[in-house]
């Protein structure tokens, strides 16, 4: 059965990073994989900037028309429909941030409804070190907004708490403790806990309750938005001198 993962969440929570990781891991398992860049909000730090890397792994990438770091107006291409029509093993939607970004999903409401039962996961990516997701109340409010805008029910949360280059396992632990409260209050389970292998291992060594960890998945970092990457590549990833990956 086709597995469809829709990644929504607070702006800057790591959706594109996880989308790339899920796609790369699916492709590595030999799955026919499609990755859909559905971010209609942000003009920088797009999945599409990693297009070459993705295509080398034989992952099909669908991007908004004209998507690159220098263009402000995006539109959805007809090829998004291929996610529903074609026969994939794995499809991953990387959606724009916050409730505003998840609005782009509403147009595909009927297509999502027609997916076989158990095929669709709608995942809220949470990084509690981000200011608008730092309390249970804020996460809850954002979750309700995103569900209303996307016309989809969130099936699980992803604890992706990190502080970019200053991350330690404590980030995942604090995220775990906060998401317990959200899960108990909303009934939406923690489906995955994600982080770089060293932090994920250290977190799991502290014996968290598996009920609030979900499936742990170690990730690699492909999307850089920290200072060291700017020194190397600049903000302008369309600059032909500095093509990344």
């Amino acid at each position: 059965m086709k597995k469809v993962k829709v990644l929504i969440g607070n702006y800057g929570s790591g959706k594109s990073e996880l989308a790339l990781n899920f796609a790369m891991q699916a492709a590595a398992r030999g799955e026919r994989t499609e990755l859909i860049d559905l971010d209609m909000v942000n003009t920088y730090f797009r999945l599409t900037e990693r297009g070459k890397m993705v295509e080398q792994k034989e992952i099909r990438l669908v991007s908004p028309n004209f998507a690159c770091s220098g263009i402000e107006t995006l539109s959805l291409p007809a090829e998004v429909q291929s996610a529903f029509v074609l026969d994939w093993d794995s499809v991953i939607f990387d959606v724009g941030g916050d409730d505003v970004g998840s609005t782009a999903l509403g147009r595909y409401h009927q297509d999502f409804l027609e997916l076989p039962e158990g095929s669709l996961e709608v995942l809220n990516v949470v990084n509690i070190r981000r200011p608008l997701a730092s309390t249970a109340e804020k996460i809850h409010r954002l979750q309700e907004g995103m569900q209303a805008h996307s016309r989809l029910q969130i099936t699980g949360m992803i604890n992706n708490t990190n502080l970019a280059t200053m991350t330690t396992e404590q980030e995942l632990w604090d995220g775990y403790e906060l998401l317990q409260q959200v899960a108990d209050a909303t009934g939406i389970p923690v489906a995955y806990t994600t982080g770089k292998k060293e932090f994920l291992d250290a977190f799991l060594a502290r014996n968290p309750d598996p009920k609030y960890v979900g499936k742990p998945i170690a990730i690699d970092v492909y999307m850089h938005r920290d200072w060291d990457s700017y020194i190397e590549y600049g903000l302008n990833t369309t600059d032909p001198r500095k093509e990344m990956y």
């Binding site: 730090f45 070190r129 502080l163 970019a164 280059t165 938005r225 200072w227 700017y230 903000l235």
Partner: peptide, 10 residues
């Protein structure tokens, strides 16, 4: 400059 506004830092 645009980098200050777009960059994420702890």
């Amino acid at each position: 400059d645009g980098i200050i506004a777009q960059m994420m830092e702890p």
